[in-house]
């Protein structure tokens, strides 16, 4: 049945189920890029990031901000646009093996999402804490914020939405409607970015450097909980993959 549809390329049946190279290259890409970012912070945070009124701050930090914002819009538009434009219009007709292959690709996307979440929500967010415990801010766009809020968060948002779009456009499992917990797992952490508005609004009234657990930050906490939506995605995937394999593995 499905092998005769347009949706499955003739050679797809022989392609490997999982392309491990994509996982390795994807993770290396983020790792190398963020290592470079961390080096940049180490050098230019101290030498050019202490006084937002200094000309070097504009050179090294505000220009970094402008460039990353433009690149993020371009990358998000291109990536999401590509995934949507190349969607499978006969997704319910694919063979079980092709479906399994796509689940592997989907999990490759999810691995990248998890990796991006780690860098954004863990590495660069707690890093922001120690910077503000050391340097009193005189701008919303501190060196740590330029990286944390406006680089690492958009990157995990772009990655997460890409994973969701891939599932929605290529996997029969997700054609039933909108998977509630998948949306929670993507939109919740996404909302951390708009919540930056609340954060910066509050910090323009009060410094509050002295207390990382200040209630002003609870918006981040609330939306961080949404990461647990990954449990629902996990359960849905296990059910779907179990049906595809149809073997007693015990």
């Amino acid at each position: 049945m499905a092998a005769t549809t347009e949706s499955v390329k003739a050679d797809a049946a022989e392609a490997p189920l999982l392309n491990r190279r994509n996982i390795v290259l994807g993770m290396l890409l983020y790792f190398v890029f963020y290592s470079w970012v961390r080096w940049y912070e180490g050098v230019y945070g101290w030498s050019a990031g202490l006084d937002s009124f200094a000309p070097e701050f504009e050179t090294y930090w505000m220009n970094f901000l402008y460039i990353e914002l433009v690149l993020e819009v371009v990358v998000a538009s291109a990536l999401w646009g590509y995934i949507w434009k190349s969607r499978d219009r006969k997704v319910m007709s694919i063979t079980p093996r092709e479906e399994l292959r796509r689940h592997f690709t989907h999990w490759t996307w999810l691995i990248m999402y998890g990796w991006a979440i780690y860098w954004g929500a863990s590495y660069f967010t707690e890093q922001d804490g120690t910077w503000h415990q050391t340097i009193i801010r005189d701008t919303d766009f501190t060196p740590s914020h330029v990286i944390e809020f406006y680089l690492s968060y958009p990157i995990y948002i772009i990655t997460g939405v890409s994973a969701f779009l891939y599932a929605k456009t290529r996997l029969p499992t997700y054609q039933e409607g909108l998977h509630l917990q998948y949306m929670v797992a993507i939109i919740g952490p996404f909302m951390i970015l708009p919540n930056v508005g609340l954060n910066e609004w509050g910090h323009t009234f009060w410094f509050m450097e002295e207390l990382f657990v200040a209630p002003l930050h609870y918006g981040f906490v609330f939306f961080g909980w949404a990461a647990l939506g990954v449990l629902g995605v996990l359960n849905t995937e296990v059910i779907a993959i179990g049906k595809l394999i149809k073997k007693d593995l015990m």
Binding site: G114, W115, I117, E126, I192, F212, V213, L234
Partner: peptide
């Protein structure tokens, strides 16, 4: 693959919750 994703996503959500509370 599931273990890695669960570990990293939980890490991110739990860490941001914990550091801010």
């Amino acid at each position: 693959m599931i273990l890695f994703v669960l570990f990293t996503v939980v890490l991110g959500g739990y860490h941001i919750h914990f550091m801010l509370t």
